[in-house]
Amino acid sequence: MVAVFTATGLISGFTRAFLDDGPGVTPPLLLLTPVVRITEAGVVMALAFLLAWKAPPLRAAVGIAALAVVSLHAGVVRTHFYLDWVQTAELVLVLGLVTAGSGVLLRLRDRSRAELAAAAQDRARRDERLDMARELHDVVAHHVTGMLVQAQAAVVVAERDKSKACELLPGIVGGGTDALGAMRAMVRTLRDNGAATATGDLTADLRQLVEKSGLPVRTSIELAGDVRPELGRSVLRLVQEALTNVRKHAHGATEVEVDVRLTATAVLLSVVDDGRTGPVHAGGFGLVGMRERVDELGGRFFAGATGEGWLVTAELPLEVRS
């Protein structure tokens, strides 16, 4: 700041003190030429603009104040043919305010852009965390729930017949293996920045999911055409979570119907059971995650009791709605 102040002072007014022969003596004519005056005014304005734009606030304030002092000094003590010293001081102040104000506006613009970029990064990280949370709930919790149900059944059966309980152990081991495989697949997807697709053949994946559910499921799958990978993954996860909810909350369910069909504009799916539902159906994050998936794709979602069981339906458009 000392260097800036000194250099500016030499340009704007201190040269008079150094170069004058004595008090009241007119400075060299070179310093009075319009070219020199316009040049030094431009340099001062550029310095003030850069300080207001780029310098830290305290340094900018001190630097601009220094520039204002030396500029007012030069404007008052120099001889002018068209303006008196009051008009000169007013002109200096107006130009200074315009210049410094322009720098402040650019500083605010840069700060606003940085804040918007930071907010966008925060939203991206939040969306990633939500996506990971849904994947953990939909994929891993599905397998863990199956293991838990079978383990609970084994405990009950073991009181009467230990050999029957042992027959349930392979299913528990298989559930643990599937859970580990799902975790590894999700880690691979995250390492690939989500590039991996969840399903290549949606019909086959849905049938495999139903077979592994261990529920009395009756399926109707009509997918004559191809479905884009991200939409197919959402369909698979919605059906998976609906079956998980049936296994956890639909007490005494004897039949589950899974219907997935493709229309000209959307994929329609429904999962309905005839079990008794309790208040636990309102807890957890399963329904929240399903609704979020459908909302992100611009679709419609419903989940609720039917009087004879529980119904989950969704309409997922083939094209993302703007």
Rank of each mutant, 00 (worst) to 15 (best):
residue 91 L to M: 12
residue 181 G to L: 00
residue 210 V to L: 05
residue 164 K to N: 02
residue 281 H to K: 12
residue 272 V to F: 02
residue 211 E to W: 03
residue 203 T to G: 15
residue 314 A to M: 02
residue 246 V to Y: 06
residue 30 L to Y: 11
residue 221 I to N: 12
residue 272 V to T: 13
residue 67 L to C: 08
residue 316 L to D: 11
residue 149 V to A: 06
residue 223 L to W: 05
residue 183 M to V: 03
residue 107 R to M: 10
residue 277 T to W: 15
residue 29 L to M: 14
residue 70 V to L: 00
residue 318 L to A: 07
residue 205 D to Y: 12
residue 85 W to Q: 15
residue 197 T to I: 02
residue 231 L to F: 08
residue 87 Q to K: 06
residue 276 R to M: 10
residue 211 E to T: 01
residue 206 L to M: 12
residue 252 G to S: 02
residue 241 E to C: 09
residue 61 A to M: 06
residue 213 S to H: 02
residue 116 L to Y: 00
residue 96 G to R: 10
residue 142 H to R: 06
residue 260 V to K: 08
residue 246 V to I: 08
residue 197 T to A: 05
residue 321 R to G: 14
residue 321 R to I: 14
residue 102 S to G: 12
residue 155 V to W: 08
residue 142 H to F: 14
residue 293 R to P: 12
residue 296 E to P: 00
residue 59 R to T: 10
residue 78 R to I: 04
residue 243 L to V: 09
residue 147 M to V: 11
residue 304 G to W: 01
residue 321 R to S: 13
residue 114 A to N: 04
residue 215 L to T: 07
residue 51 L to F: 06
residue 20 D to Q: 12
residue 227 V to R: 10
residue 59 R to I: 09
residue 196 A to H: 08
residue 81 F to I: 14
residue 262 L to C: 00
residue 25 V to E: 09
residue 217 V to E: 09
residue 275 G to Y: 03
residue 84 D to E: 06
residue 89 A to Y: 11
residue 109 R to K: 11
residue 85 W to F: 14
residue 273 D to K: 05
